[in-house]
Design a protein around this nucleic acid. Sequence first.
DNA 1: TAAAAATGTGCAAACGTTTCAATATCATAA
DNA 2: TTATGATATTGAAACGTTTGCACATTTTTA
Lengths: 337, 337
Amino acid sequence: MKNVTIKDVAKAAGVSPSTVSRVISDSNRISEETKELVRRTMRELGYHHNAIARSLVTQKTNTIGLVMARPTQQAFANPFFSGIIQGIAAVTQKEHYSLILSSTGDYREEQEETLKLFRNRRVDGVILMSSRRNDELIDQLIKSGYPFVLIGRSPEHEGIPIVNNDNIKDTYDTVAFLLKRNYKKIIALSGPEEYIVSQDRAQGYIQALREHGNMDPEIICVADFKFEDAYQGVLDYIKENRKKFDAILAFDDMLALGAIRAIQEQGLRIPEDVGIIGFNDEPMLSYLKPALSTVRLPIHRMGEEAARMLIKMLNDDSYKGEEIILSTELIIRDTVR
Amino acid sequence: MKNVTIKDVAKAAGVSPSTVSRVISDSNRISEETKELVRRTMRELGYHHNAIARSLVTQKTNTIGLVMARPTQQAFANPFFSGIIQGIAAVTQKEHYSLILSSTGDYREEQEETLKLFRNRRVDGVILMSSRRNDELIDQLIKSGYPFVLIGRSPEHEGIPIVNNDNIKDTYDTVAFLLKRNYKKIIALSGPEEYIVSQDRAQGYIQALREHGNMDPEIICVADFKFEDAYQGVLDYIKENRKKFDAILAFDDMLALGAIRAIQEQGLRIPEDVGIIGFNDEPMLSYLKPALSTVRLPIHRMGEEAARMLIKMLNDDSYKGEEIILSTELIIRDTVR
DNA sequence: TAAAAATGTGCAAACGTTTCAATATCATAA
DNA sequence: TTATGATATTGAAACGTTTGCACATTTTTA
C-alpha cells in the first residue's frame, strides 16, 4: 500500500530514476523503446507523480490563488463573485492549474494571508477580485515582484495587469440613456466609496450630469453591496426628501433590488414613477417582476481573461501582463419606460 | 533576494538547522534563551517557512479539496453552493488550512480529477458537495482510504461521514403543512432524479400524500436546478393539464422562482390560486414580490460542519467522522395563503 | 560522590522529484 | 582503423524541511 515512487518504477524497469523522470517529461533524449518500457511499468505499478516533490525542485506550484479582497460574507453574497470564480475555474482546470481560495474576515488579514500564500510558496500568482483606494496589497505585491492580475483597476498603479470594463464610460452612457428616455432627476445608488469601482461609476455619473447640464448629482452611498443596505438607504432617502427623483442608477444589481423593494413599498410605480437600472446582470434578476434593466458585464469572461493572463505571465517571463478592457451591454427590460 | 531558509537562520544564529526547526514547532526540548535568539534571527532575516518542503517530509499538505460533483456551470449558478463554500472557507481559514477548488465540466472528469488530487498529494481530504445514485467516486474514495466528508447522503454507503438535513422528513412535513393550509392538489417540482437530494425529497413528498390519502403524487422533473428549466417545465405542465393543481412544492428555490414566473404568466394568482414553497432560503428571494416561502436549510452551517469534521478526521486517526443531520425551518412568506 | 535522570543540542537520513555533468554506446567519416 | 560526433543513459546533487538517535551537559537522587 506504499506509494509508488519514481525509484520503484526505475528499479522495476531496470533503468535509473533520471530516465523515468525524463520519460515523464517526454524528453527527446530517451529512446522510444525505453519510453514504452517505462510507461508500461508505470501503468503496472500504478505510479502517480508527487506534485509536492516536484514543486520543491522546480520552484513552481502550478497553483494560483484567488483573493476576494472583500470580507468573505460580503463577497459570497454577491453573485458577481461566483461568476468570476466560475470563469477562473474553467481556465485553471483546462490549463492544469490548481485554484486555491483565500478569503478572510477583513482587509488587513487578507493582505497578510495573501502575502503568506507567496512567501510560503503555496501559489505562483494570484488574482485580486477587487481593489480599493491606495490598495496596500498591490503595493506589496509589486514591491516583492509577486505575479498578480487585478480584476478592476487601481488609479495609483499605472500599467499593472488588469481585466476590467470602462466603468466611467459605461456609467456615463447609461446616464445619458436615461436622460434621453426623458428621466429628469436621476440619483445614483452606490456601495462603499473605498472601492474603485464605486468611484469610477460615481465619476461617470457626475460627468454625464454635468455635461448635460440639467441637474446636480446626488449619490446615496450604502455600507455594502447588499440589498438590505440599499433598501434601507433608499427608504430613508425617500422619506427625507419626499421623493424628488424619477430614476435610480444602482451601481450593482443587488442594490437595484433593494431599491425596487423600497420604491414599491412607498407606493411608487416602476417604471412609470421611477426608472431603475442596475449593474452586472445577475441572471436571477431577469426573472424578477418587473425584470431588472441593467448594464451587463461579461463576468464569466472577465474571470477567464484574468486567469489566462496570469497563467501566461507565469509561463512566459517576457510577458508582463496587459490591460484588458471589456465592453458591456445595456440590457433594457421592465424597469425603465 | 534569495529565499531565507532554515539553514540561513541556523548559521546566523549559530545553531543547527534542527534546532531552528524545533523552535518553529515550539518544541519543549529547546531552552527559552535559544528560542528567543532564533526567533529574533528569523525576524531579522525575514524567514518564512516553505510549505512545500514541509509537506514533503510530513506527508501532509494542510489543504482540503472542494469537489462540486456538479458541472461547474450548474454548481455556481445556484447560490446554495456559494453558501456552502462560504461556510467551509470560514473554517479552513481559522484552522490554517488551504482550500482548493475542483470543478470540471462533467461527472466523469471530476471523478478523475478528485482522485488525482489525492494521488498527486495535493490534498489531505475532500468535501463532496453532492451525491448521486451509485456514486462511483465515493466507492473509489472508500476503497483507497482517502478521507472525505459528503454533504448530502448516499444510500449505498452506510456509515460514511456526512452532513445533511433529513430531506425525507423535511419534505414530508412541508407537504403536511400545505395540506393543513387546505391546499388540495400539490405537485412537486424536482431537479434531475440522479441526485440523491431529488430522490429523498420525492420520497418525502410521496409518503406524505399517501399517508394523508387524498391524492396521487405528481412530480415534474426538470433537467437542472435552474429557473429556466423550471419555468418551461411548469409552463408545459399547465398547458397540457389545464392547471389541475393548487400548490407546488419546488425542491429548490431556483425552481420555485421559475414556477412563480410561469404561473403568474398564465394569469394565476399567488398564493390565492396556487401556493408555492421552495427549498434552501436563498436570501435574495425573500426580496422578491411575492416573497418566497421556503424550507430554510442551514447552508452556511452545513459547510462549516463538513469542514470541521474533515479537519478533525485528518488530525485524529481514531476519529472516523460521523453523521450530522441538521434541522431545517419552514419559512412562510407571501407565496402560501 | 557516584549513578541516574533530565535537559538541550546536533548529525544525518529521509521525503520524491528534477537536472547538470559525466559516461557509455554506437554509427559515421577520414 | 581511429578519431568524431550523435545518441542514450546514469550518478549525484539539490530543493527545504522534519525527526530519530546520539551526544553532551546539567541537575537530581540515593
